Amino acid sequence: MKRPFVIALATVGVIATAAVALPNLPPNPLTDTVNARLFNNEEKTFATAADAPKKGDPAFVLPDWIPQDATKVKVKAHTTGKAKLIRFTLGPTPLGGPQCAGAPAQPAPKLGAKWWPKDAGQAHPECRGHYQVVVRGGKVYAWTNGAAPTGATMAGVGPTR
């Protein structure tokens, strides 16, 4: 009678431990697979923005406003939605693209990552397309939860969709 209960309890303990530990382990083939299948998250790193794909999986195609000479690019994307985090270091080229006009602040990121600052959502981000962007020194943190900013227009471009 006690043996099935102990086995069930041990199984629940292993699953709970894995659910907490696996998303926080450094990237490797096992954690990448578990994160992708169980948590629907994928991460990729590129030496420069120019190394990122230009077409294909939209989760890892970078927005046009990111300069090609940006370095140390990290992207985390939710594979069943459009939420995404992007971090990179600016090179000599400044951020491009039009900024949103009249867009209210968007919510903090729904995703999280070890390399993502916990207070980025509380900073006063600027809006670029579907992204909220915070620049700290030479590092840029951008996120989207998948929706265009409410009431936003791109300066000189019209409503975002």
Rank of each mutant, 00 (worst) to 15 (best):
Q106A: 09
P63Y: 01
P159W: 03
T153P: 02
L25W: 03
T71E: 10
G156W: 07
K76N: 09
A36L: 10
A70W: 00
T160S: 13
M1W: 11
P53N: 06
N41H: 11
W115N: 06
P117F: 14
K84V: 01
A120Q: 09
P94A: 10
P23E: 08
G156F: 09
A18K: 05
T79W: 02
G138D: 15
A18S: 11
D32Y: 03
N35H: 06
T80Q: 15
N40T: 14
H130M: 15
I86K: 00
M154I: 14
Q68G: 14
A49H: 00
N35M: 10
A120Y: 04
N28V: 08
A19P: 03
F46T: 00
T17P: 02
R37A: 12
G56I: 01
T48L: 01
A59V: 00
G56S: 05
T45F: 13
A77W: 00
W116S: 04
A120C: 08
G56V: 00
V6M: 15
G129W: 00
E43P: 04
K82F: 14
V14D: 12
V12M: 09
L95W: 04
F60Q: 03
L90T: 07
W65N: 02
T17L: 15
A108I: 08
A105C: 10
A148G: 09
T93Y: 14
A50K: 06
G112V: 05
A10R: 07
G13V: 03
A47E: 15
L38W: 14
P94F: 07
P125S: 12
E126V: 08
A108L: 09
G151H: 06
A155R: 11
A18V: 05
V140S: 05
P125Y: 05
T48E: 01
A108Y: 06
H124S: 15
G121L: 09
E42H: 08
G81L: 10
T71M: 06
Q68T: 15
M154Y: 13
V140G: 03
W143H: 02
W115S: 09
V135K: 14
K44C: 09
N145L: 08
V12L: 11
G138F: 12
L85F: 05
T79D: 06
P98N: 10
I86M: 09
A47V: 09
A77G: 06
V134I: 12
T93L: 12
I86P: 00
E126R: 08
H130Y: 13
G96F: 07
N35V: 01
C100S: 06
